[in-house]
Design a protein around this nucleic acid. Sequence first.
DNA 1: CGAACAGTTGATTCCGTTCAAATCTGGTGG
DNA 2: CCACCAGATTTGAACGGAATCAACTGTTCG
Lengths: 255, 255
Amino acid sequence: MSLRVLRPNGPTLVPTPRAGSGAVAEDTGCGGCLVRHLAVCAALPVEQARTLEALAGDIPLRAGEVLAREGDARREVFTVTSGALRRIRLLADGRRLVAGFLMPGDFIGFSGASHYRHSIEAVTDSSLCAFSMQDMRSLCSRHPELERELLERACVELDNTRANLMSLARMTPLERLASFLLDMDGRRRRQGHGGDEVILPMPRTDIADYLGLTVETVSRSFTRLRQDGLIATEDPHRVALKDRKRLAALAEMPA
Amino acid sequence: MSLRVLRPNGPTLVPTPRAGSGAVAEDTGCGGCLVRHLAVCAALPVEQARTLEALAGDIPLRAGEVLAREGDARREVFTVTSGALRRIRLLADGRRLVAGFLMPGDFIGFSGASHYRHSIEAVTDSSLCAFSMQDMRSLCSRHPELERELLERACVELDNTRANLMSLARMTPLERLASFLLDMDGRRRRQGHGGDEVILPMPRTDIADYLGLTVETVSRSFTRLRQDGLIATEDPHRVALKDRKRLAALAEMPA
DNA sequence: CGAACAGTTGATTCCGTTCAAATCTGGTGG
DNA sequence: CCACCAGATTTGAACGGAATCAACTGTTCG
């Protein structure tokens, strides 16, 4: 009933090109892509499915494995097709930041830098769809809709990241956690899931490093929200939102 | 020798369309634009100067005046041509965040939302060049280079905002301030200024709300950096960087 | 069974906040 | 010109909340 266990620092990534070869894996090309409606590819006409497939590489990752390391040269961009990843950055003395979590449909590649500014690690077993930056650029010049879609998404990501600034700079631990839970809920809903249950695939450490707190404080905050009846937790990775109203009030979110 | 005094909350913005009318103001159209090389417009061919001018509106702001309020409908995008502005957001109980500062050449308009998520206020007397979002969209469809430039800039802004996350989540007051000073220095340099002097047009309160600290802590951090010989300050708005190396070490920046 | 690790809970410490006050500056009006 | 005021900045003292240190529980996996 629980999720996969994390294994600390897996070896390295072995990108797996896919083009043209007789695929042993699932038969679903872009046409049957489960996250197409969530992904940037949706900006392209369906007839382009073949072209896309030819350019795309499929990358499976086991929990804990590293897709890219901070400092590596950026050569590809990705769309998450399943699982969950984290974007992390370390200071010399070990202080850690989780700059964000990446879920199915999310695009990885909005950066103006030539090298990764964060490592990208799989939180759970995941898979991604990869394009070389070159291919992506040429796709963009042929399909302005794609570039427009990318800009639109970059803007939304910027909105979200700016919202996180408020959380980190001025909100209390309880408020940050409420905010985080509602955010995760929103993402889950956008993926078509319903109900009041939020799934948190990541360990408490990741939540702490995402919210700028310690694990202990995060744990105490969960306990507090539970005691106050805002949430219920059968298992640390499954949280039931019991009182959306008060959660939203804590997070100071519109709804 | 000092900068303009801030006046708290000026009245409101009175946008000033400019197209076609016999301009009383400075004769410099886009051709003579002082920030053209810094602005997104640089992506357009020079022959387009006339077209741009016809679409652009000039907006002068006095220190403290508000360009846009959180919650207002977004109808225009802007390029800062002079001065300095801040992007702010308030919580119900008055807690304040400065999500960023906007300097000459900066583009204001990277957001996926239909309404402003932050208020934009002038820190000092400023001026901006305004385009309706409609005009901007049509310019983009005619000139893919412009859309590419916008995407590129949105990505860079995302990089910078993500870097701020680390500052807010995990760095000490001293490190945050060092980081901020080097950042401001970098922006000043990119505008063509040299020397070791950084100009901080904003009051300490803004710096505090930007770094997620109190004014007192910011002030103490300045004092500390001064005592340790990393900086010198003749006046609160002018800071001389005395020891870039140690500042960079504090900020954990590459250089 | 025992080791390793995630998560929770408790006790104590410490850093940044809060509260308070002094200093300095520029601007105003007598 | 100078006294005075308002706001910005700095400095000091005390407090408090999250970090730190530590211990315990529960689960997974060898």
